[in-house]
Design a protein around this nucleic acid. Structure first.
Lengths: 213, 213
DNA sequence: GTCATTGGCTAGCTGTACTATCCAATAATG
DNA sequence: CATTATTGGATAGTACAGCTAGCCAATGAC
């Protein structure tokens, strides 16, 4: 398969494929001569992964590179790979260590996690993300205690345990499992968010008494 | 309150405040002379709203402008304002009307919404977003039927009905209610996403047998 | 009277995700 | 075998977002 065919098969323009090659998101094709390289279905797959992370997961190219490096590292365990994807999804909230308010929010986040009995790396950036969300809710005068957030945590754990982790093809090849895990994490997150907004619209229509169209 | 005090009170640098004024996100202060304008707590509040939508909600400046215009429009009903926020959160997925695969995914999305009995505007961009997510899952060989997504829908509706819509201060001033609604929608969405990723990490640690640290 | 601050303006900067163009080497085609 | 198209590789340019910086005359505080 040549680059033009790869482009046709994936729907990604040639210059963009070249860009991904340069950026190390896509492994180079097998060189058959100085001006020809051969690509295969693995490259089509990889492009699908990239586009899924990019368009649905809204990851940056830099984050995708990290995720892909983890996926490709055969020595990395599943948990580590998934962790890389999680951390790539956490959008680099810089902690304001010196801020009193911030430290309170961060403590609240840590407490919630501890109360739930969840096993989370103490250095996980997700903790900072949670702290920022709590801080924002606080500042806007909305309830952001562990009590208020518990229903969200319950929903989250149910969905993850019963639905997502359960559908991973553990028996298949490592690559398939890792990809399912990473993409599933990212895409299911968006699905849930979309459905929540749809539910919101629907409930709001009834609640605020918009007439049936 | 002058601009430097507004900056100090909100933590937003003066040049950025000037930028928001230019962009129409922040209403101009009351002119007291050619070189002086007076700002008040409303401006601090507004800056908090902007930063929440920007940093937590990850909305673009253009989207925030639309949301704010809706919030400020006294003639607009709650449902309309909330709709504006929802649509601002839907990240402009352009529909590929001519693509057979796409039309199938969109039909699946519409069917799921109809089956759930949800009242969603037929022109809601959220429908397209859902279609794209379904399409992505499909392409990666993951289940994306109504059946598979039902648990997510159930979780979404429970959270929205029981938790979010319930906590809106309907009795207070319109502005407070609208703001709570809009920000709540945005921030709660992120909270749920964050908690889901945390749950994922925790479950994954157990599932893949990472030793207790 | 001096000096810092303000609003308003225009211009510049940084980062991200591409696009476009050029080139010589090669492959396909008649 | 001659012509035409395509390829990989490289470099440069584009478009947009979200600020950031500098300048200016007017003004206000001390």
């Amino acid at each position: 398969m040549r680059i033009s065919q790869l482009s046709a098969a994936s729907g990604v323009p040639i210059p963009t494929i070249k860009y991904y090659l340069r950026e190390g998101l896509l492994p180079p094709g097998e060189q058959t001569s100085a001006t020809r390289a051969e690509y295969d279905v693995g490259h089509v797959r990889r492009l699908r992964l990239i586009r899924a992370l990019l368009e649905v997961g809204r990851l940056s190219i830099a984050s995708i590179r990290k995720v892909i490096a983890a996926v490709d590292d055969e020595d990395l365990g599943m948990h580590k790979v998934l962790g890389t994807a999680h951390y790539a999804l956490a959008p680099a909230v810089e902690a304001h260590e010196d801020d009193e308010e911030w430290r309170r929010a961060r403590a609240e986040a840590d407490r919630l996690i501890a109360d739930l009995g969840w096993r989370i790396d103490p250095g996980a950036p997700t903790r900072d993300e949670l702290a920022q969300a709590i801080l924002t809710l606080d500042r806007l005068g909305m309830p952001a205690t562990g009590e208020a957030l518990r229903p969200y945590a319950a929903a989250a754990i149910d969905l993850v345990v019963e639905h997502e982790i359960g559908t991973i093809p553990i028996d298949g090849p490592r690559e398939a499992a890792v990809e399912a895990l990473v993409v599933g994490t990212v895409v299911h997150g968006r699905v849930l968010d979309i459905l929540r907004r749809l539910a919101h619209e629907s409930v709001s229509a009834r609640f605020f008494g918009v007439p049936e169209s």
